[in-house]
Design a protein around this nucleic acid. Structure first.
Lengths: 159, 159
DNA sequence: ATTCTATAATTAGATTATCGAACTATTTGA
DNA sequence: TCAAATAGTTCGATAATCTAATTATAGAAT
Protein backbone atom coordinates (compact mmCIF):
# COMPACT_ATOMS: atom_id res chain seq x y z
CA UNK A 1 0.00 0.00 0.00
CA UNK A 2 1.54 3.30 -1.05
CA UNK A 3 1.59 6.40 1.10
CA UNK A 4 -1.19 8.20 -0.71
CA UNK A 5 -3.47 5.26 -0.24
CA UNK A 6 -2.62 5.09 3.44
CA UNK A 7 -3.27 8.80 3.75
CA UNK A 8 -6.61 8.56 1.97
CA UNK A 9 -7.72 5.82 4.28
CA UNK A 10 -6.60 7.65 7.41
CA UNK A 11 -8.22 10.89 6.32
CA UNK A 12 -11.38 9.08 5.53
CA UNK A 13 -11.50 7.51 8.95
CA UNK A 14 -10.26 10.34 11.10
CA UNK A 15 -11.90 13.38 9.52
CA UNK A 16 -15.48 12.16 10.02
CA UNK A 17 -14.55 11.21 13.56
CA UNK A 18 -13.37 14.74 14.30
CA UNK A 19 -16.33 16.23 12.50
CA UNK A 20 -18.64 14.16 14.64
CA UNK A 21 -16.91 15.42 17.75
CA UNK A 22 -17.12 19.02 16.58
CA UNK A 23 -20.84 18.64 16.02
CA UNK A 24 -21.30 17.16 19.48
CA UNK A 25 -19.14 19.80 21.08
CA UNK A 26 -21.21 22.51 19.45
CA UNK A 27 -24.50 20.93 20.49
CA UNK A 28 -23.30 20.62 24.05
CA UNK A 29 -22.57 24.35 24.06
CA UNK A 30 -26.27 25.15 24.43
CA UNK A 31 -27.78 28.60 24.63
CA UNK A 32 -26.76 29.89 21.28
CA UNK A 33 -28.00 27.31 18.89
CA UNK A 34 -25.71 27.40 15.90
CA UNK A 35 -25.27 24.53 13.50
CA UNK A 36 -21.77 23.86 12.25
CA UNK A 37 -22.70 25.36 8.90
CA UNK A 38 -24.13 28.48 10.50
CA UNK A 39 -20.96 28.89 12.48
CA UNK A 40 -18.87 28.45 9.38
CA UNK A 41 -21.02 31.01 7.62
CA UNK A 42 -20.55 33.56 10.40
CA UNK A 43 -16.82 32.94 10.48
CA UNK A 44 -16.57 33.38 6.73
CA UNK A 45 -18.62 36.56 6.71
CA UNK A 46 -16.42 37.91 9.47
CA UNK A 47 -13.25 37.05 7.62
CA UNK A 48 -14.41 38.51 4.33
CA UNK A 49 -15.78 41.73 5.73
CA UNK A 50 -13.26 42.49 8.45
CA UNK A 51 -10.79 44.26 6.19
CA UNK A 52 -12.20 47.52 4.93
CA UNK A 53 -12.40 48.10 1.20
CA UNK A 54 -13.02 44.48 0.28
CA UNK A 55 -15.66 43.56 -2.22
CA UNK A 56 -18.97 42.75 -0.55
CA UNK A 57 -19.61 39.11 0.25
CA UNK A 58 -22.49 37.83 -1.84
CA UNK A 59 -24.76 34.91 -1.16
CA UNK A 60 -23.30 32.90 -4.01
CA UNK A 61 -19.75 33.45 -2.82
CA UNK A 62 -20.76 32.22 0.62
CA UNK A 63 -22.51 29.22 -0.93
CA UNK A 64 -19.37 28.31 -2.83
CA UNK A 65 -17.28 28.52 0.29
CA UNK A 66 -19.69 26.38 2.28
CA UNK A 67 -20.18 23.86 -0.50
CA UNK A 68 -23.94 24.30 -0.43
CA UNK A 69 -26.39 25.32 -3.14
CA UNK A 70 -27.50 28.93 -3.29
CA UNK A 71 -30.91 27.72 -2.23
CA UNK A 72 -29.67 26.08 0.96
CA UNK A 73 -27.46 29.03 1.71
CA UNK A 74 -30.35 31.42 1.31
CA UNK A 75 -32.31 29.47 3.93
CA UNK A 76 -29.30 29.28 6.21
CA UNK A 77 -28.72 33.03 5.99
CA UNK A 78 -32.42 33.66 6.60
CA UNK A 79 -32.00 31.81 9.90
CA UNK A 80 -29.05 33.97 10.86
CA UNK A 81 -30.95 37.12 9.93
CA UNK A 82 -33.89 36.03 12.09
CA UNK A 83 -31.51 35.51 14.97
CA UNK A 84 -30.29 39.06 14.43
CA UNK A 85 -26.74 37.99 13.68
CA UNK A 86 -26.47 38.91 10.01
CA UNK A 87 -27.69 41.74 7.81
CA UNK A 88 -28.55 41.52 4.13
CA UNK A 89 -27.69 44.86 2.58
CA UNK A 90 -28.47 45.97 -0.91
CA UNK A 91 -25.62 46.25 -3.34
CA UNK A 92 -25.82 49.54 -5.22
CA UNK A 93 -23.50 48.45 -8.04
CA UNK A 94 -25.56 45.39 -8.88
CA UNK A 95 -29.02 45.33 -7.47
CA UNK A 96 -29.42 41.59 -7.85
CA UNK A 97 -26.75 41.01 -5.25
CA UNK A 98 -26.63 41.08 -1.50
CA UNK A 99 -23.88 42.26 0.73
CA UNK A 100 -23.73 40.07 3.80
CA UNK A 101 -22.64 41.77 7.01
CA UNK A 102 -22.43 40.75 10.64
CA UNK A 103 -24.45 42.73 13.14
CA UNK A 104 -22.82 43.69 16.43
CA UNK A 105 -24.57 40.71 18.02
CA UNK A 106 -23.22 38.56 15.21
CA UNK A 107 -19.69 39.70 15.83
CA UNK A 108 -20.00 39.09 19.57
CA UNK A 109 -21.45 35.65 19.07
CA UNK A 110 -18.82 34.69 16.53
CA UNK A 111 -16.13 35.53 19.04
CA UNK A 112 -17.95 33.61 21.76
CA UNK A 113 -18.54 30.54 19.59
CA UNK A 114 -14.92 30.54 18.52
CA UNK A 115 -13.91 30.57 22.17
CA UNK A 116 -16.29 27.70 22.92
CA UNK A 117 -14.85 25.68 20.05
CA UNK A 118 -11.38 26.40 21.36
CA UNK A 119 -12.38 25.27 24.84
CA UNK A 120 -13.90 22.04 23.54
CA UNK A 121 -10.74 21.31 21.64
CA UNK A 122 -8.57 22.22 24.60
CA UNK A 123 -10.20 19.44 26.62
CA UNK A 124 -9.06 16.93 24.05
CA UNK A 125 -5.71 18.45 23.43
CA UNK A 126 -4.61 19.36 26.92
CA UNK A 127 -2.19 16.47 27.21
CA UNK A 128 -0.69 17.04 23.82
CA UNK A 129 3.00 17.75 23.49
CA UNK A 130 3.92 21.12 21.97
CA UNK A 131 5.78 19.49 19.12
CA UNK A 132 2.64 17.59 18.21
CA UNK A 133 0.71 20.84 18.13
CA UNK A 134 3.25 22.16 15.67
CA UNK A 135 2.89 19.11 13.43
CA UNK A 136 -0.87 19.53 13.43
CA UNK A 137 -0.59 23.19 12.52
CA UNK A 138 1.71 22.30 9.66
CA UNK A 139 -0.65 19.60 8.50
CA UNK A 140 -3.62 21.95 8.45
CA UNK A 141 -1.59 24.49 6.54
CA UNK A 142 -0.99 21.82 3.89
CA UNK A 143 -4.57 20.62 3.81
CA UNK A 144 -6.33 23.94 3.71
CA UNK A 145 -5.43 24.99 0.18
CA UNK A 146 -6.29 21.51 -1.10
CA UNK A 147 -9.85 21.94 0.05
CA UNK A 148 -10.44 25.67 0.28
CA UNK A 149 -12.77 27.25 -2.23
CA UNK A 150 -12.59 24.31 -4.59
CA UNK A 151 -16.31 23.66 -4.41
CA UNK A 152 -16.95 25.76 -7.49
CA UNK A 153 -14.35 23.94 -9.59
CA UNK A 154 -15.55 20.57 -8.43
CA UNK A 155 -19.13 21.40 -9.27
CA UNK A 156 -18.05 22.29 -12.77
CA UNK A 157 -16.26 18.98 -13.14
CA UNK A 158 -19.60 17.25 -12.76
CA UNK A 159 -20.94 18.60 -16.03
CA UNK B 1 -3.01 33.98 20.53
CA UNK B 2 -1.42 30.79 21.84
CA UNK B 3 -0.78 27.72 19.73
CA UNK B 4 -3.69 25.69 21.04
CA UNK B 5 -6.07 28.46 20.16
CA UNK B 6 -4.61 28.76 16.70
CA UNK B 7 -4.93 25.01 16.28
CA UNK B 8 -8.53 24.98 17.45
CA UNK B 9 -9.41 27.66 14.98
CA UNK B 10 -7.64 25.96 12.09
CA UNK B 11 -9.20 22.59 12.90
CA UNK B 12 -12.56 24.17 13.11
CA UNK B 13 -12.20 25.77 9.72
CA UNK B 14 -10.41 23.05 7.82
CA UNK B 15 -12.09 19.89 9.09
CA UNK B 16 -15.60 20.86 7.99
CA UNK B 17 -14.13 21.91 4.65
CA UNK B 18 -12.61 18.48 4.14
CA UNK B 19 -15.73 16.77 5.39
CA UNK B 20 -17.78 18.69 2.89
CA UNK B 21 -15.46 17.57 0.13
CA UNK B 22 -15.61 13.96 1.26
CA UNK B 23 -19.38 14.06 1.17
CA UNK B 24 -19.36 15.54 -2.31
CA UNK B 25 -16.78 13.05 -3.52
CA UNK B 26 -18.91 10.19 -2.22
CA UNK B 27 -22.06 11.52 -3.82
CA UNK B 28 -20.32 11.94 -7.14
CA UNK B 29 -19.26 8.30 -6.98
CA UNK B 30 -22.76 7.15 -7.91
CA UNK B 31 -23.80 3.55 -8.40
CA UNK B 32 -23.29 2.30 -4.93
CA UNK B 33 -25.28 4.67 -2.86
CA UNK B 34 -23.61 4.81 0.49
CA UNK B 35 -23.83 7.76 2.84
CA UNK B 36 -20.69 8.71 4.70
CA UNK B 37 -22.15 7.21 7.87
CA UNK B 38 -23.00 3.95 6.14
CA UNK B 39 -19.51 3.77 4.79
CA UNK B 40 -18.07 4.42 8.22
CA UNK B 41 -20.33 1.73 9.65
CA UNK B 42 -19.15 -0.82 7.09
CA UNK B 43 -15.53 0.08 7.68
CA UNK B 44 -15.95 -0.26 11.44
CA UNK B 45 -17.73 -3.59 11.19
CA UNK B 46 -14.97 -4.80 8.93
CA UNK B 47 -12.26 -3.67 11.31
CA UNK B 48 -13.92 -5.13 14.39
CA UNK B 49 -14.76 -8.49 12.89
CA UNK B 50 -11.72 -9.11 10.72
CA UNK B 51 -9.61 -10.59 13.50
CA UNK B 52 -10.99 -13.92 14.65
CA UNK B 53 -11.82 -14.44 18.29
CA UNK B 54 -12.89 -10.84 18.90
CA UNK B 55 -16.04 -10.07 20.83
CA UNK B 56 -19.01 -9.60 18.53
CA UNK B 57 -19.75 -6.04 17.46
CA UNK B 58 -23.07 -4.96 18.91
CA UNK B 59 -25.37 -2.23 17.70
CA UNK B 60 -24.63 -0.05 20.71
CA UNK B 61 -20.89 -0.36 20.22
CA UNK B 62 -21.31 0.72 16.61
CA UNK B 63 -23.52 3.61 17.68
CA UNK B 64 -20.85 4.78 20.11
CA UNK B 65 -18.20 4.66 17.44
CA UNK B 66 -20.34 6.58 14.95
CA UNK B 67 -21.51 9.10 17.52
CA UNK B 68 -25.16 8.38 16.75
CA UNK B 69 -28.00 7.25 18.97
CA UNK B 70 -28.84 3.54 19.05
CA UNK B 71 -32.07 4.45 17.33
CA UNK B 72 -30.40 6.12 14.37
CA UNK B 73 -27.88 3.34 14.15
CA UNK B 74 -30.61 0.74 14.09
CA UNK B 75 -32.17 2.47 11.09
CA UNK B 76 -28.80 2.85 9.40
CA UNK B 77 -28.02 -0.84 9.87
CA UNK B 78 -31.46 -1.77 8.59
CA UNK B 79 -30.57 0.03 5.37
CA UNK B 80 -27.35 -1.92 5.07
CA UNK B 81 -29.16 -5.20 5.74
CA UNK B 82 -31.71 -4.40 3.04
CA UNK B 83 -28.87 -3.76 0.62
CA UNK B 84 -27.51 -7.19 1.52
CA UNK B 85 -24.26 -5.81 2.89
CA UNK B 86 -24.63 -6.63 6.59
CA UNK B 87 -26.02 -9.50 8.63
CA UNK B 88 -27.59 -9.25 12.07
CA UNK B 89 -26.83 -12.46 13.92
CA UNK B 90 -28.16 -13.53 17.27
CA UNK B 91 -25.82 -13.47 20.22
CA UNK B 92 -26.14 -16.72 22.18
CA UNK B 93 -24.47 -15.38 25.35
CA UNK B 94 -26.86 -12.45 25.63
CA UNK B 95 -30.00 -12.73 23.60
CA UNK B 96 -30.71 -9.00 23.74
CA UNK B 97 -27.67 -8.32 21.64
CA UNK B 98 -26.83 -8.48 17.97
CA UNK B 99 -23.64 -9.52 16.34
CA UNK B 100 -23.05 -7.42 13.24
CA UNK B 101 -21.24 -9.08 10.36
CA UNK B 102 -20.41 -8.15 6.80
CA UNK B 103 -21.76 -10.34 4.02
CA UNK B 104 -19.46 -11.22 1.14
CA UNK B 105 -21.09 -8.46 -0.87
CA UNK B 106 -20.47 -6.12 2.07
CA UNK B 107 -16.81 -6.98 2.15
CA UNK B 108 -16.47 -6.48 -1.60
CA UNK B 109 -18.25 -3.15 -1.51
CA UNK B 110 -16.21 -1.93 1.42
CA UNK B 111 -13.05 -2.58 -0.54
CA UNK B 112 -14.50 -0.88 -3.59
CA UNK B 113 -15.72 2.17 -1.68
CA UNK B 114 -12.36 2.53 0.01
CA UNK B 115 -10.73 2.54 -3.39
CA UNK B 116 -13.18 5.18 -4.63
CA UNK B 117 -12.40 7.35 -1.60
CA UNK B 118 -8.71 6.93 -2.28
CA UNK B 119 -9.18 7.93 -5.91
CA UNK B 120 -11.14 11.04 -4.94
CA UNK B 121 -8.42 12.03 -2.53
CA UNK B 122 -5.68 11.28 -5.05
CA UNK B 123 -7.13 13.92 -7.36
CA UNK B 124 -6.61 16.53 -4.69
CA UNK B 125 -3.33 15.26 -3.45
CA UNK B 126 -1.57 14.43 -6.69
CA UNK B 127 0.64 17.49 -6.63
CA UNK B 128 1.58 17.04 -3.01
CA UNK B 129 5.20 16.64 -2.06
CA UNK B 130 6.12 13.35 -0.38
CA UNK B 131 7.34 15.12 2.74
CA UNK B 132 3.94 16.77 3.07
CA UNK B 133 2.30 13.38 2.84
CA UNK B 134 4.45 12.26 5.72
CA UNK B 135 3.51 15.25 7.84
CA UNK B 136 -0.16 14.55 7.20
CA UNK B 137 0.22 10.92 8.17
CA UNK B 138 1.94 11.95 11.38
CA UNK B 139 -0.78 14.47 12.10
CA UNK B 140 -3.53 11.92 11.64
CA UNK B 141 -1.70 9.52 13.89
CA UNK B 142 -1.74 12.20 16.60
CA UNK B 143 -5.36 13.15 16.03
CA UNK B 144 -6.89 9.71 15.85
CA UNK B 145 -6.53 8.71 19.49
CA UNK B 146 -7.84 12.12 20.58
CA UNK B 147 -11.11 11.45 18.84
CA UNK B 148 -11.43 7.69 18.56
CA UNK B 149 -14.08 6.00 20.65
CA UNK B 150 -14.47 8.92 22.99
CA UNK B 151 -18.13 9.37 22.19
CA UNK B 152 -19.21 7.27 25.14
CA UNK B 153 -17.14 9.23 27.65
CA UNK B 154 -18.30 12.51 26.26
CA UNK B 155 -21.93 11.50 26.43
CA UNK B 156 -21.48 10.66 30.08
CA UNK B 157 -19.99 14.08 30.74
CA UNK B 158 -23.30 15.59 29.74
CA UNK B 159 -25.10 14.23 32.79
C1' DA C 1 -38.57 -17.30 43.16
C1' DT C 2 -40.15 -13.02 42.39
C1' DT C 3 -39.78 -8.64 41.37
C1' DC C 4 -37.28 -4.38 40.48
C1' DT C 5 -33.90 -2.12 37.66
C1' DA C 6 -30.82 -1.79 33.93
C1' DT C 7 -29.63 -2.79 29.21
C1' DA C 8 -30.25 -3.91 23.96
C1' DA C 9 -32.62 -3.12 20.16
C1' DT C 10 -36.63 -1.45 17.52
C1' DT C 11 -40.38 1.54 16.07
C1' DA C 12 -43.09 5.85 15.57
C1' DG C 13 -43.32 10.71 15.01
C1' DA C 14 -41.14 15.13 14.74
C1' DT C 15 -37.43 18.06 13.26
C1' DT C 16 -33.69 19.60 10.47
C1' DA C 17 -30.66 20.14 6.60
C1' DT C 18 -30.30 19.54 2.31
C1' DC C 19 -31.48 19.35 -2.77
C1' DG C 20 -33.59 20.55 -7.42
C1' DA C 21 -36.98 23.08 -10.00
C1' DA C 22 -39.67 27.00 -10.74
C1' DC C 23 -39.87 31.87 -10.16
C1' DT C 24 -38.66 37.13 -10.02
C1' DA C 25 -35.62 40.81 -10.67
C1' DT C 26 -31.70 42.61 -12.75
C1' DT C 27 -27.79 42.90 -15.82
C1' DT C 28 -25.14 42.05 -20.01
C1' DG C 29 -24.39 41.90 -24.66
C1' DA C 30 -25.81 40.78 -29.62
C1' DT D 1 -34.41 46.22 -27.74
C1' DC D 2 -34.67 41.86 -26.62
C1' DA D 3 -32.45 37.21 -25.43
C1' DA D 4 -29.54 35.02 -22.38
C1' DA D 5 -27.17 34.85 -18.17
C1' DT D 6 -26.91 35.73 -13.24
C1' DA D 7 -28.47 36.57 -8.14
C1' DG D 8 -31.44 35.41 -4.97
C1' DT D 9 -35.85 33.32 -3.07
C1' DT D 10 -39.55 30.02 -2.40
C1' DC D 11 -41.63 25.47 -2.61
C1' DG D 12 -41.98 20.54 -2.24
C1' DA D 13 -39.51 16.36 -1.57
C1' DT D 14 -36.14 13.53 0.64
C1' DA D 15 -32.31 12.14 3.92
C1' DA D 16 -30.68 11.74 8.41
C1' DT D 17 -31.16 12.59 12.60
C1' DC D 18 -33.39 13.06 17.37
C1' DT D 19 -36.54 11.76 21.53
C1' DA D 20 -39.91 8.96 23.62
C1' DA D 21 -42.27 4.77 23.93
C1' DT D 22 -42.06 -0.29 23.50
C1' DT D 23 -40.41 -5.11 23.85
C1' DA D 24 -37.29 -8.49 25.32
C1' DT D 25 -33.77 -10.06 28.17
C1' DA D 26 -30.47 -10.04 32.01
C1' DG D 27 -28.78 -9.22 36.65
C1' DA D 28 -29.48 -8.03 41.44
C1' DA D 29 -31.96 -7.65 45.78
C1' DT D 30 -35.04 -9.15 48.79
Amino acid sequence: MDLTELLAQDLFEVVPLIMQAIRQDMRRERGHDLSVMQFRALAHIERKTSTAGMAALTLTALADHLGLTASSTSTLVEGLVEKGLVERRDCPEDRRRLSLQLTDAGRALTRHAREAARAALAIRVQAMRPEDTKILLQALKILRPLYEDTSAEIKNMEN
